[in-house]
Design a protein around this nucleic acid. Structure first.
Length: 564
RNA sequence: UGCCCGAUCGUCUAAUGGUAGGACACCGGCUUUUGGCGCCGUAUGUGGGGGUUCAAGUCCUCCUCGGGCAACCA
């Protein structure tokens, strides 16, 4: 990358790396890794870690491996592997030849285990799960040693081979490291290295019936790959002494583990287990539901990789627990889309406007700017005619104070067209419902002509009735009403679900320019927000848009303040 | 009541013994054919007590508060 890094903020991890480079540790090399377990989809919290690990590798001209931590065949699936690969690619990161797997190292890990057994540093425990748990003690109380702890090396070796060969049932034996049952660190109380699981692995099939535990596999996988800086989240801090113990006993390369605080965000949950529950219980439309904090959900919602990467940069990296304002994520996507998105006019809740003094059958082409932030995006022509649609929000029969938009007798500008005045409100005599507005336009006020001396306080968007095309628009709000949905262990997080988080609007009227909008394409609907063409429900005759984010809206703010 | 980690504006995050700064949010103003964008400004912070020092957010110490650790999960 170029000089753009000059403004990237520093953090405590970079300082450690800088020191290591100064000391010529690892010959000044930086190799990181991102190690997801393929048991769910990636979310915005993972994005922070991905940007950190791949970002560091790129800044220090090193590399970052993608390695799947696939040590538990009963929880892991190929679907998740595929989604993780897709999401990281989409974010814009690369990991060389191919992705790696902890399961690539099962043979090596097995040999390492044999080595520890031979050194007398590991043993087969034939206690059952409850007994092992019992003997482990409590954080405040030391554990006690297993009766099998002092088995002979030969017996351990023999048992371990037979475990591998499938001679035992699940749970009959485990291999444990022989460390210290009275350690104040629970992780050092003879942690389990291997357990028997007669399960089919998504990659190794039925080759193995013993599988390494994460604590045993992870550090050694890092070591095998020559990882220099093994960056993980805070909850693994207490595991570091164990990882250090393993590589020391094995006399292999020592990756330095560094822990940072995981990302939390207000009004959202980050637990994969809870996200899975939302999916399985159909509270959302899959892992990629636009309300989900998953990468695939944000993508479907219309977020850009740039916005997510920039967000990851803005939240920073530190060791204290944190809760990021949801508004920072929204800011990041608005900021990027503002510079990048094609502007377009779209009416979500249409009211018909008839310009009584505009000639019937006449059509004018109005020139509209595609993006005021980027002149190179050019202009387009908008058809204008006697019958238009405007948005319900832009008309009020009894306008409150400071309401600048259309109301009986008032004037507004139609964006890129004329100033109009509302002369008459036409209602259904039976229901009292507003059917149409009769307005008159001022021919002297055509946009861009410069013949107008009139000033109006508001400009509203519109589409020509006969030229409009129809679309479905989905408006999203936060999935949870509580700023910390999982905060109270006594309360089910599902009870905080926002029932109004999805609103589907049919028969929205959008300008003809959008006729050929492609899946995933993003637009700014002027004055309304950013919208992206949905990748799941859009068909040739049903164009579906997802609202990515609203525009900031001073009027709504004024209204909300009044209602308080 | 054991071990580990942490504590700076409302929320994040800098300041590496020498003027507590930035971003988001908020409030106010300017600008505006998007009540958008942009620009300007106001306000808001070192958890507490001792100590070291000419000088402490930073170092020492005690306290307080918060988080993590007792899966054959990762």
């Amino acid at each position: 990358m170029g000089n753009s890094e000059d403004n990237k903020p520093s953090n405590f991890i970079k300082e450690i790396i800088n020191k290591d480079i100064d000391n010529n540790k690892n010959n000044g090399r930086v190799i990181t890794r991102f190690p997801p377990e393929p048991n769910g989809y990636l979310h915005i919290g993972h994005a922070k870690s991905i940007c950190l690990n791949f970002g560091l590798a790129s800044e220090y001209n090193g590399k970052c491996n993608l390695r799947f931590d696939d040590t538990n065949p009963t929880k892991e699936e190929q679907e998740y592997v595929d989604s993780i690969i897709e999401d990281i690619r989409w974010l814009g990161f690369h990991w060389g030849e191919k992705e790696l797997y902890a399961s690539d190292y099962f043979d090596e890990l097995f040999e390492y285990a044999v080595k520890l057994i031979k050194k007398g540093k590991a043993y087969i425990d034939s206690s059952d799960g409850d007994q092992i748990k019992e003997m482990r003690g409590m954080p405040t109380k030391p554990g006690i040693e297993s009766p099998y702890r002092n088995r002979a090396v030969e017996e351990n070796l023999d048992l371990f081979m037979r475990m591998k060969n499938g001679e035992f049932k699940d749970g009959e034996h485990v291999l444990r490291a022989k460390i210290d049952m009275s350690s104040p660190n629970m992780n050092m109380r003879d942690p389990i290295m291997y357990r028997i699981k007669h399960a089919t692995h998504h990659r190794t099939g039925d080759k193995w019936c013993i599988y390494p535990m994460y604590d045993w596999a992870h550090g050694q996988s890092d070591s095998i790959e020559g990882i220099t800086h093994s960056i993980c989240t805070l909850e693994f801090e207490n595991h570091r002494p164990l990882y250090d113990w393993f590589v020391k006993e094995l006399e292999i390369h020592h990756p330095q583990q560094i822990e940072f605080a995981r990302l939390n965000m207000s009004y959202t949950i980050m637990s994969k287990r809870k996200l899975l529950q939302l999916v399985e219980d159909k509270h959302v439309d899959g892992w990629d539901d636009p309300r989900m904090p998953t990468i695939s959900g944000l993508r479907r919602r219309g977020y850009t990789p740039e916005a997510i990467r920039n967000f990851a940069e803005m939240v920073g990296v530190a060791k204290r627990d944190n809760v990021i304002d949801y508004s920072l994520l929204e800011y990041s996507v608005r900021d990027h889309l503002n510079k990048q998105a094609q502007r377009v006019m779209s009416v979500l809740r249409p009211i018909k406007v008839i310009l009584t003094n505009y000639p019937e059958g006449q059509i004018e082409e109005m020139e509209a700017v595609n993006n005021p932030e980027d002149e190179t995006m050019g202009t387009r022509m908008l058809p204008f005619s006697r019958e238009l649609f405007i948005d319900m929000d832009d008309f009020k029969e009894d306008p409150p104070k400071k309401y600048y938009r259309l109301s009986p007798g008032s004037e507004v500008r139609l964006r890129y067209a004329y100033i109009i005045k509302c002369d008459e409100v036409i209602k259904d005599p039976a229901t009292g419902e507003i059917i149409a507005l009769h307005c008159s336009y001022d021919p002297e006020t055509k946009s861009g002509v410069g013949t107008s001396t009139k000033k109006v306080k508001a400009t509203i968007h519109w589409v020509s009735a006969q030229h409009a095309i129809e679309a479905e628009v989905r408006l999203y709000d936060r999935l949870f009403n509580s700023s910390d949905p999982a905060g109270d262990k006594e309360v089910d997080f599902l009870s905080h679900i926002n029932k109004d988080s999805l609103e589907i609007l049919k028969n929205c009227k959008i300008e003809p320019f959008l006729k050929n909008a492609k899946i995933g394409e993003r637009f700014q609907f002027e004055r309304l927000g950013y919208f992206a063409v949905d990748n799941k429900n859009t068909t040739t005759d049903n164009l579906v848009f997802n609202r990515t984010a609203t525009l900031k809206d001073a009027w709504t703010k004024i209204e909300n303040a009044k209602n308080k």
